[in-house]
Design a protein around this nucleic acid. Structure first.
Lengths: 206, 206
DNA sequence: CCGGCAATCCTCTAAAAACAGGATTTATAA
DNA sequence: TTATAAATCCTGTTTTTAGAGGATTGCCGG
């Protein structure tokens, strides 16, 4: 029985490309596509694909969130993350959110087909470069784990606010803000705010 | 006579997608594709397309540099920038480097065909969203003009160096570094380094 | 129940940055 | 040639941060 495939991506070129690449695969049945999260969810109310190829950048919602939502409601649907970025953090997030695989948009036809067939069996599949990125133990792409409050303070620092200003805004003491600041510097292994903000932005945490 | 089209993009899915979208366009002749800058240049030594669709992110060289190079050697070839990002700065750079147009990867088939036909006539073409991004008069995307030295100092600040460290590195006085720092803050209209670094990174200046 | 963590608050010191005024030299463009 | 701009350097003061040391409360999971 053919694998029923659905695609969520806001780029027509990519949708068409995948469609073409899979045209001659008799084992894969093209169910259609959505260009945003909302119409994907609408589609799932009346249809049940085996595999969804899902872009991680969607106009209305991140693929990571959509992935989580789909897996909660339809755990039998296997999801493959799709992106141009082979950043460890993205891939990890996608997999943590319940994806069964991750394909880069420069994947070859062979990788694409192999990926779809592999996850349809319930196994995991990572495209070559994605697997490489994940295997790198410590490439600086590792995000430090920061708390809600720390993230809040981080963003206010990035907005140019001083400890005192942040303290007033959050209704806490400026020494508390300072503690959060110091913890952020420690977690990011930075010696001052300049490098902190740079690091945080490079890791897409602001 | 049909418009001879060549594509430079490292994503097979996109190449296939465009190919499919243009399949029935008798007015457009598909010459082939390259997945990096080097093979694009090699192709141009023996071939002369009318229009090149060029991704701004290539593995070996930025599309912006490749664009410049192609236009220098083959001014008769019209180039359309291709990207998922509709950031003013990217679009501007591409156009300044000699591109005749800019298409987003979520462009429709109509936009794609219209774009190719328009630039083939020597005119400019921007896809709808790209044009929107460019038309925004003062959206904070405007980069301040900074000098070479200021940029140098900006980067060292972002690396977490203090005025003294920068001074030693550049063999200048720390007061000079401080002046550059002050000028940077003034030009970016920021009140401290945190917001400066954030602004500079958002404008892709670091 | 206890250990660990998040979030809060504190003191003190030294270093650094922000703020406010300058000035000089050199090169380049009008 | 006369502005103009870039890059250099200076003296102050005030504010803010960084660094080092703490402590308390409350919550959650093993």
């Amino acid at each position: 029985m053919a694998i029923k495939l659905f695609i969520v991506d806001d780029h027509y070129m990519v949708i068409e490309g995948i469609h073409t690449l899979l045209q001659n695969e008799k084992n894969i049945e093209w169910m259609g596509h959505a260009t945003n999260a909302a119409s994907c969810l609408a589609f799932l109310q009346t249809n049940r694909p085996d595999v969804i190829l899902m872009d991680i950048n969607l106009p209305d919602k991140s693929g990571i969130d959509l992935c989580k939502e789909v897996k909660e409601n339809y755990p039998g649907v296997f999801i493959i993350g799709l992106s141009t970025f082979n950043q460890q953090s993205f891939i990890e997030k996608m997999m943590v959110s319940g994806a069964s695989g991750y394909l880069l948009k420069n994947a070859t036809q062979e990788e694409l087909v192999e990926g779809i067939e592999t996850v349809a069996k319930g196994k995991q599949f990572l495209s070559f470069d994605a697997a490489l990125a994940l295997r790198k133990p410590d490439n600086g792409n590792n995000r430090p784990v920061i708390t809600r409050r720390e993230k809040e303070v981080l963003e206010l620092i990035a907005d140019g606010m001083t400890n005192n200003e942040i303290a007033k805004k959050l209704f806490i003491s400026s020494t508390t803000v300072d503690t959060h600041r110091k913890n952020l510097l420690a977690k990011f292994e930075c010696k001052n705010v300049a490098s902190l903000i740079k690091a945080a932005m490079q890791l897409n945490m602001i």
